[in-house]
Structure formats: C-alpha cells, structure tokens
Amino acid sequence: MSPRPALEIAVTSPAGARAARENGADRVELCTALELGGLTPSAGLVEAVAAEGLPVQVLVRCRPGDFVHDAEELALMAAEVRSVIASGAAGVVIGALTADGALDVPAVARLAEAARASGRPVEVTLHRAVDQSADPVATAALLPSLGLTRVLTSGGAPAAAEGLATIAAMAAAAPEVEVMAGGGVRLADIPALVSAGVASVHLSAKARAPRRPGSAWVPLGAGGTSAEQDTHFVTDPGVVARARRALDLAG
C-alpha cells in the first residue's frame, strides 16, 4: 500500500503554522511576501514557526523575479540557507536557472551543500524554478545526483491541474525524488494530482487578512494599490482541513 499523500501548507507566520498543524498538514513551507511568490524569512520568524511543532521547509529566495542569480546573490542565499537551518528549519526550498533555462547545477549544488553543512539531516526541495525551466522533466531527472529530497512543480503549467502529464513524467523520470504538486491547486484537483503520481500536495490555503475597522490607510508604495489590496495573507484553517480530507480520500 502506498504511503498517505503528504500535505504541505505555505505559511508566513506562527499563526499560519498552528492553523496548518491543527487541521492535518504534515509540514509547512515558510516564506515572507507570499504575494510576490515568496522570499526568505528572518531567522526570528523561522525560530517562531519551528516552535509550533511541524517540520518547517524554509524558502530561500533573495528577491522576486527570475531565477537566474549572479555570484553575489548566490553567496547571499548560501548564507541564508545556513542561517535558517541554524534557526531550526527541517529543510530548505531552493533553486536557480541558467540564462538559457537549464538547471544551474553548480548553484543548486552549492546551496544544497550549505544546507548540509550543519551535519544534521536536512531536506532540500527544488522550488518552482523547475516550472520556468526549458525542460521540467529533464530537470527533475538531474535531482537525484544532487541529493535533493523533492521538487515542487505545476508541471510547467500556470496551474498544476493543467500540467498533469508533465508531473507524471517527472515522477517517472526521478522516482527517488518526492514530486510535490503545487501552483494554483484547487481542492477539486487533488484526486487527479494523486493519480498522476505525486507523493504530496502543496497549497497556500490563503485568505486576505481583514483590515482593522477605523484604521487609516495611506499608500506606502507605487502602483496605486487600494486599501483592500494593501494587506497580507493569512492561512485559512477550513481550507487546510478540506485539503487533508481530500488527500485522505484520494490516497
């Protein structure tokens, strides 16, 4: 019998980690700036979320935008990897591409080595840079040689439900690596994703935080953001619980 499919929830706070833990998640991915696709959180935030009890996979991404990183950015991210592992992360979520869309193998190897420098067991996940690569299946096939634990992917599509064939091909190409479906995942998509061969499903289960009544709003950035849009995301416990039920039924 196959293992129960795992549920990973993207969170940005200790409260999000509690909501994930209390409603059946197996682990969390921690980041800040979820609205930008996620950036590296602070050491203090990693410590606070790790204290909530679930294994914490920490996204290490030094800026928004593409995944082609120069030497200075890679040095920064290697330092961030060491910092978040020292702060209690169970693993890191990393990635880098070359300008022509191939996996930047030396960069990924460097970041993975930084994660293992602590001497304790850690997990290393390739993030959705794989979905911007020229060939996600060929990229997945490289991961065992780099010692990576898993890959987070939508199968190169805008949403994972649209990339089922590629996700299945990635799982076949890298059976030693846990293929985790993520990116625009809806609860109704979970059975098909499990059937495609994923070992886990990742979703943010996010909702916009309500604005506090009576608080004044002044725009602090460019772009003409409205008061309704100028907020942060929180974890919806109901979505986490429904995702857990859907995975249990599908698995």
Rank of each mutant, 00 (worst) to 15 (best):
S2V: 13
A6V: 10
L7F: 12
L7P: 10
A10Q: 06
V11T: 04
A19S: 12
N23W: 02
L30R: 00
T32S: 15
G38H: 01
L39C: 08
G44L: 14
V46S: 09
A48V: 03
E52A: 02
G53A: 03
L54I: 06
Q57A: 08
V58M: 08
L59H: 03
L59P: 04
R61T: 03
G65E: 13
E72K: 06
A75R: 11
A75C: 05
M77Q: 10
R82S: 14
S83A: 14
I85Y: 03
A86F: 09
S87R: 12
A90M: 09
V92D: 00
V93E: 02
V93N: 01
I94L: 15
G95K: 00
L97D: 01
G101T: 11
A102L: 08
L103E: 05
P106C: 05
A107I: 00
A109C: 02
A109I: 04
R110I: 04
L111E: 10
A117P: 13
G119Q: 03
P121M: 10
P121D: 14
E123I: 01
L126E: 08
L126T: 09
L126P: 11
Q132V: 11
P136E: 07
T139W: 07
A140F: 04
A141G: 03
P144I: 15
S145T: 13
S145W: 08
L146K: 09
L148T: 01
R150F: 00
R150V: 05
L152A: 04
T153D: 02
G155Q: 09
G156A: 04
A157H: 09
A157C: 13
A157F: 13
A159I: 04
A159N: 06
G163P: 06
G163T: 11
L164G: 02
T166M: 07
A168D: 09
A169G: 13
M170H: 12
A172R: 15
E176R: 12
E176G: 07
E176N: 04
A181S: 12
G182V: 13
G184R: 03
V185L: 14
I190M: 10
L193V: 15
V194W: 12
V198R: 09
A199H: 13
S204R: 11
P210V: 04
P210D: 07
R212S: 13
G214Q: 09
S215L: 11
W217I: 09
A222C: 03
G223C: 02
S226A: 12
A227I: 11
D230E: 05
T231F: 08
H232R: 12
F233K: 12
V234M: 14
V240N: 11
R242S: 15
A243W: 12
R244I: 13
A246P: 12
A250Y: 13
